[in-house]
Design a protein around this nucleic acid. Structure first.
Lengths: 237, 237
DNA sequence: CAGTGGTCTAGACCACCCA
DNA sequence: GGGTGGTCTAGACCACTGT
């Protein structure tokens, strides 16, 4: 087990101290935190960098560091469906629709950067939140990298299964979001009227070497699901 | 004008050196860059942090830093419509539908954290890309903070106008994305069939003190627009 | 102009990857 | 085991804020 970095401990300590403070309350100065916790100022800054990135604090040069107002939208992070639903106080569940091995085909092969003739495991699931349909999810993985996956228990977190059983760690993902008109079979499965719109999220999961290992298409019900995130001004290029 | 930080210069120098290198090409080690450019290793790390955040490189502990594969999806940043369209190689344009001052009302007042009886400037525009409708945009701003805005030239970048004329700098924004069924008037303006779906982006722009200064609802055509971004695994909480 | 966050230095040790 | 990125220290000066 990796030992906790000092700035991680400090980050959580600061988060605990901040709890209950109204927005815009100033934090102690970086030099004060540094002295009080017996760490260097750089370490304090690492902790504050993390808190700032998470939207917990904001900094104004020359003025100080302050508790950020409660945000509507959490900062966007790579989460599994289960984590996502729990964040929304919904109980996740899953119904397996199909699982098997097929040839990749041109589109999936392009996303995964493999041969179109290569085999991929395809898993389709209907995912539920508090017992009602939330989205339709179809995952593609190179069969070579996940031997026997189609026969395993696919009712829970796929990411956990990939990590624990196959040593595949997905560190980042590229996503494309579109609005679509649902097809008849799709609206039937999701339990919404024909002609409803849905949110389609196409995701390519990458390992820590930025090589694609997973291609997933998810179709969300428009009436139950939205995507929330915070964006910041980019650095001058 | 703020002088360029060393790590910013270094970042651009590295970007230039990397240009043309195939993906996964290793960069020089941090110590080597440090020696070669005559800066401390911490400064090198600052430059690499920025490149990593922008998706230009990835790092593997114990192995090295590498050129990242070309990404489908740019990292998400706060951009104006004009910038967004130019990134997509489309020519942005605008048609003013309405501009005026009205009372905030409960919903807008809640988003902007002002009194519901306070006045806000409301600007509605149809935004075009390469001459064809792309989205419908309605902006709300506290009238007090943007005196005379409704009478100014609203055909170009609103963000620039706010910055130059009113000293309002929007540093970050919270966004909520949903799929919706377009209303009749909306589809007519956007030039799509009745019953088409659209992508609705609700945005609240914040100044650098995280106070809301702008509330905007944008309705995009589903057939011409998507949202692309990269997400990463969050730090352990 | 005093105090804040932003940048920078020159060291050091640790955790991890790979030959 | 040699070399990499990850963390950490104890300083220093700069740019900016607010009074």
């Amino acid at each position: 087990m990796a030992r906790q970095a000092k700035y991680e401990e400090l980050r959580m300590a600061l988060l605990a101290e901040m709890a209950g403070s109204p927005p815009h309350t100033p934090l102690p100065t970086e030099r004060e935190i540094s002295a009080r916790h017996g760490v260097s100022r750089n370490t304090v800054r690492q902790a504050l960098d993390a808190l700032e990135a998470a939207g917990a604090v904001y900094r104004v040069q020359g003025a100080g560091t302050f508790v950020a107002p409660a945000v509507v939208s959490k900062s966007l992070a790579l989460t599994s469906f289960s984590e996502d639903m729990r964040d929304r106080d919904l109980e996740p569940a899953s119904r397996l629709l199909a699982a098997g091995t097929v040839r990749a085909g041109r589109q999936v092969a392009g996303l995964l950067e493999i041969d179109p003739e290569a085999e991929v495991v395809r898993v389709s699931r209907l995912r539920l939140a508090d017992g009602a349909p939330m989205c339709l999810e179809t995952v593609h993985l190179p069969a070579q990298r996940v031997p026997g996956l189609a026969q395993e228990d696919l009712s829970g977190s796929l990411y956990e299964l990939l990590s624990v059983r196959h040593g595949l760690e997905i560190g980042s993902a590229e996503q494309i979001v579109r609005a679509v008109d649902l097809a008849e079979t799709e609206s039937a499965l999701l339990g919404v009227p024909v002609g409803s719109s849905g949110l389609r999220v196409q995701r390519v999961g990458l390992d820590r070497r930025e090589s694609p290992v997973e291609a997933t298409t998810t179709l969300y019900r428009a009436d139950r699901y939205d995507i929330r995130f915070t964006v910041r001004r980019a650095a001058r290029s």
